[in-house]
Design a protein around this nucleic acid. Sequence first.
DNA 1: TATATAAGTAAATTATAGTTGACCAAATAT
DNA 2: ATATTTGGTCAACTATAATTTACTTATATA
Lengths: 106, 106
Amino acid sequence: MSDTLGKKTLGRVVKRTEMPELSKPFSPVQLAKAITSKRTGMKLTLMDVSQALAISKPTLIKIEKGDVTVQLHNVLKVMEYLGLSFSLVSDDMAHTNEEVSDEQWY
Amino acid sequence: MSDTLGKKTLGRVVKRTEMPELSKPFSPVQLAKAITSKRTGMKLTLMDVSQALAISKPTLIKIEKGDVTVQLHNVLKVMEYLGLSFSLVSDDMAHTNEEVSDEQWY
DNA sequence: TATATAAGTAAATTATAGTTGACCAAATAT
DNA sequence: ATATTTGGTCAACTATAATTTACTTATATA
C-alpha cells in the first residue's frame, strides 16, 4: 500500500509500483523493482514481455523478484527491452587520498 | 600491446590490461574487461578468485570474455569480490522536455 | 635455455536454470 | 456480482550452464 499509487490514465486506474531510487547502492532487489516499475509503467504485462523476448513467465517472475539464479543473458534482454541499463561503478577510486603515491585505479 | 602496460611491482613486471572507461555505455564486454582489469590490478589469478568464490575457472573465463550465458549470481559474486558494482540507468528520463505534461519517469 | 606459473580450451558428467501446462488467487473490468 | 485479465506457484521435462580433469598455449622467473 505504501509503495503503490493509483493513477488515472484514459479513465483507467492503473496500479503502479514506485520507481526505486536509481542512485541507491545496487542490489538485485533494487534491479527487480526497477524492472517491474518500468514494465508496469509502460503498461506491459508479463505475457507481453514473455512473448516479445521469448522468455517464459516463471523466469520473468524470478527476475522481478530479485532472484539471482537466472542467466545474465535474460536479465539484459529484459532490461534492454524496457529501456534500463547498467553503468559500472568501481569501489576505491580515491578513498582518502592518503596513499596516492602508487596510482591505483582499482 | 596497445592495451597493456608494464608496471614494476616489488621487482616483478606485471602485465595489466587498461581499465576501461567506466562512463561508456554498458556492454557485457565492457563489464568483462573491467573485471579482468580489476583482478589483474589486484594481482589475483583466476585460481585465486576461483577458490575464494567457489567458482570454476572455466566459468570465470566465460565471464571475463563477456559471455552472457552465465548466472547473474556468479557475475555479482565476482564483482563484489573485486570491488565492482552496478548502478542502474533508465533511458528516457527527460528526452527533450517537450512532453513533460505527463510526469513519466520510465 | 629450461622451469614454473598462469591463462585458456576441450570432453564427459553433474547440477540446475528454463520451459510447458495446468492451476489458483488477486486484481481489474463488464 | 460475474467475468476476464494478470500475477504467481507448482510439478515434470528439457535444455544447458557449471564442474571436474586433463591437456594445451602463453607469459613470466631462474
